[in-house]
């Protein structure tokens, strides 16, 4: 696999949307290519950053209780 192909599939690899065969091909390429591995780790880091940043918001307890009463 060339770096360009790896780069094209990197988002889907990070999102775990590739087939097992495709994922294995990427994995093998990453193990032998420090540049692509660094790019992969950056994209994974970015995805985690978005997730953790937006996950800070949770439903207020009072709202949860209100809903529980409405729905029961």
């Amino acid at each position: 696999m060339k770096c360009e192909e790896c780069s094209d599939k990197l988002d889907r690899y990070v999102d775990r949307e590739l087939t097992n065969t495709e994922a294995l091909e990427i994995q093998l390429h990453l193990e032998g290519c420090p540049d692509c591995m660094e790019h992969y780790e950056f994209q994974s880091h970015l995805k985690r950053l978005v997730k953790h940043s937006c996950e800070c918001d949770t439903a207020p307890k009072a709202f949860r209780e209100k809903l529980r009463q409405i729905l029961s």
Binding site: D57, A59, F63, R64, R68
Partner: peptide, 22 residues
């Protein structure tokens, strides 16, 4: 059944609230 449904639905409250807030 309604109570069980509501209880299960409420386990997803944070996801819905976050989405609605965004």
């Amino acid at each position: 059944a309604q109570t069980a449904f509501a209880e299960e639905a409420l386990t997803h409250l944070d996801t819905l609230y976050r989405g609605a807030l965004r």
